[in-house]
Structure formats: structure tokens, C-alpha cells
Nucleic acid binder design. Structure first.
Lengths: 199, 199
DNA sequence: ATGCAATTAGAATATATATTCTAGAATAGA
DNA sequence: TCTATTCTAGAATATATATTCTAATTGCAT
């Protein structure tokens, strides 16, 4: 029988519902209903709700991190931070999904066996990211460098962007300004504190 | 009959469970079970689960904001930001509750009638806070000042503190250092951009 | 002592949700 | 055309959870 619904239809529906009413509202029934599909069609494609929501979250975070990874590979810490507001403008729904909710809102307990491999991959990537960030920002890896770089590249841009996602509006330019100013200040402060004794 | 359980026992139990396994895990059954109380005793005190969780969230956010309000009333913006890491050290559980979850995780839909008044109060306080923050940080109220002050006093410290709450560890001193440095930089940048033309 | 009011106790009920199951329809290849 | 396979369809089932209900129990005031 020719398929009336595509896998991607279920993903889109789940995304739309999660973004509008929260991941908890993305039930098998509500997703299917939105597509006017029977729940049987859902389970024909996905072995469980957890697999669908888990995949959605994984795909989204991977897409997001791809952009950060490119900047980090180029050793450009500032571009890495600014990726967050840019990506949020280009992908407002995905940004809400990722930045306004927790992983636990999508997969409460253990990851389904089916996704373990992809999750392990992602975890490995996250591990590496810590060192990459430190090097991109400070040209050096160490405990303090990692902590500061995590702040600059992960925590800071998310904080600056959050209220706009909440209001479903694109992050305005002042967000980038805040990020750039903060970035420069933290780096300058770090350099000042680590100068051997100056000229 | 002498009460075997106190209202506060239910709050504590709910807090402990919410902090450990997320608010969703704080079910009437799990809360009662933790106290070895029958669910009847729960409903003898609270008209619904929403009322308990909603109150818990409200109480917590009010307690948190009290400290910020004091600093703002004194016109001390820096003290207001630094309140967050300090409070997180003093109240690790409450900080997790507030900063790692959303209001919606506690009260999904409408607020129960019973709590509406307290919520309205809080909303009013939040409204005022925007102007108070702007004045405390910049000595002036305006759109840009509000946006920057919100970043400095609300978003920044939460971002700096979050990963430590996640790991259930007290925010280390570097958190305060990050906050202070950022605060100074944003204020200095603002001043530089608004100088009429200087000396 | 007696009876009342508060409280405990936990069974019964209602509802939402994930998942399974059985049957039927559509399509492609033989 | 025939048939196996894929997919739609939605009813049936299992489970978790909030809430209600009815019946004891307890301590205090009288």
C-alpha cells in the first residue's frame, strides 16, 4: 500500500505540538490526530513514543551543534558563540525545542536501545567540545579555560536569547551586542590575569 | 485527632522528589508514599496536586526574589546579580527547583483559583522589577536600559550557575568572577556609547 | 465518660495515555 | 489476475494518576 503519511510528517507534527504546548503535550494521540492518522500508522513507523521524541531531540541538537563545530574547527570562538542567535533566527521552532526544554522532557528515563548508539556518539562529541572551546577562545586548554569557554560559547548566548524565544520573536541585534561585549571582556580579563608580569 | 503529618511535610516531600527526579515525578502517590501517609491525608490539606506544586513554586520564587528586591531597593545592581549564586549556595534544592525547571512543569494549565491572587501579586512585582533593575544598574529607565539590566540581573547569573546546579554542586567562586567581569563590561560599554561627546 | 471534629486509612472511580492487536485496503511484482 | 507486503484503521488492553468516597480512629472539650 502506498504510504499516506511520511515519517517526517510525524516529526513535524511532534515538533509543532512540542513547541506550542510543550513536549508533554506531544502524545501519540495528539500527534496522530494532527495528521489525521490512526495510531496504528504511528506504531508502524516508530517502536515507541520515546523513540520519536528522542530522535527529534537528537536530530535537532546535532543540527545545532554542527554550526558550532564548524566555527570551533576554524578556531573562531566568537563565531561559535554568535552561532546561537543566528541559528535561533533561522530555526525558531527548533531553537525553542532545544533551548526552552530539557532533554528529560523528551526522554524521561533511559534512552531506548534503538538510539543508544547515536546518543553515545553525541556524548563523545560533547566531551571533545570542551577542549575545542578552550583552545578556540584562549589558545590553551585547562580547567579555568574550559570553564570560561563553556560560559562564553554555551551558557552566555543561550541566556541572551532565551527571553526572545519565550516571546516567539527573533533575537534582536542587541543580543549579539551583549554577547560580543561580554566575550571581549572575559577574554581581556583572562589575559590580564595571566600576563607573566608584562613589559 | 492529632495530626500525624504537617502541611510542611508534604511540601518538603514534594520538593525533595521534584529536585531529585523532576516535578513530574512528584505525584500525589509518590509524595504520600514518601511520608507513609495515605492519599486521603494529602487531599485533607490540599484541594489538588496543582495547588501543592503551584504553592511550592510560588513560595520558592518569592523567597528568591526577596533577596533581589532588597538589593534593588538599595539601588545596588551588582549585589542584585550576585544574589543568585549566593542564594544557590544557601538553598541548593530550592535553586534547582527554580532554575532548572519551568513554571509550566509545576502548573501546566491555568492557575488554580486558590492561587490566582498570589500569582497576580507576583506578576505585579515582576512588572515593577524591570524599571527597578534599569535604575539600579544605569540610573535611568528606558528600553535599552531594561533589556541590558534584565540580562545582567536575571539572565546572566542564572546562566553562570546552571551547570553547577545540574551537577548538584555549589557554584564555585569563578561564577561570581564571571558575573562581576561581565557586569562591569556591559555597564562600561553602555556608558561609552552614551557619552554626549566626552571631555 | 461521651460525643464531636479533625484526621487517618485506603478502597473505588474516572480519565488519560501508551501500546498491542486484528482486520481490511492498496499496491507492486509475478 | 494473483498474491505477498506494506500500510491504514481503529478497537481493545494495560497502566498510571488524580480525585472522590466511606469508614475507622483519635484526642479534646464538655
Amino acid at each position: 500500500m502506498r504510504a499516506k503519511f511520511a515519517e517526517s510528517d510525524f516529526y513535524s507534527a511532534a515538533l509543532a505540538i512540542a513547541v506550542e504546548h510543550g513536549p508533554a503535550a506531544a502524545t501519540v494521540a495528539s500527534i496522530s490526530e494532527r495528521l489525521k492518522a490512526p495510531t496504528g500508522s504511528f506504531y508502524h513507523r516508530f517502536s515507541s513514543r520515546d523513540v520519536l521524541l528522542g530522535s527529534l531531540w537528537l536530530q535537532t541538537i546535532l543540527d545545532f551543534q554542527k554550526g558550532v563545530a564548524v566555527a570551533l574547527a576554524a578556531g573562531d570562538g566568537l563565531a561559535a558563540t554568535l552561532h546561537t542567535p543566528r541559528w535561533a533566527r533561522e530555526h525558531p521552532d527548533e531553537a525553542r525545542l532545544l533551548l526552552m526544554f530539557h532533554r528529560k522532557d523528551f526522554v524521561a528515563g533511559e534512552w531506548p536501545e534503538e538510539l543508544r548508539e547515536r546518543v553515545a556518539d553525541m556524548s563523545r562529541r560533547m566531551q571533545n567540545a570542551a577542549a575545542l572551546r578552550a583552545r578556540a577562545v584562549f589558545g590553551r586548554d585547562g580547567t579555568e579555560e574550559r570553564r570560561l569557554a563553556q560560559f562564553l560559547i554555551a551558557e552566555l548566548p543561550v541566556a541572551a536569547v532565551r527571553q526572545h524565544l519565550e516571546r516567539r520573536e527573533p533575537p534582536p541585534p542587541i543580543v549579539d551586542h551583549i554577547i560580543v561585549t561580554t566575550y571581549a571582556a572575559i577574554v581581556a580579563d583572562y589575559r590580564a590575569r595571566h600576563e607573566a608580569g608584562g613589559a
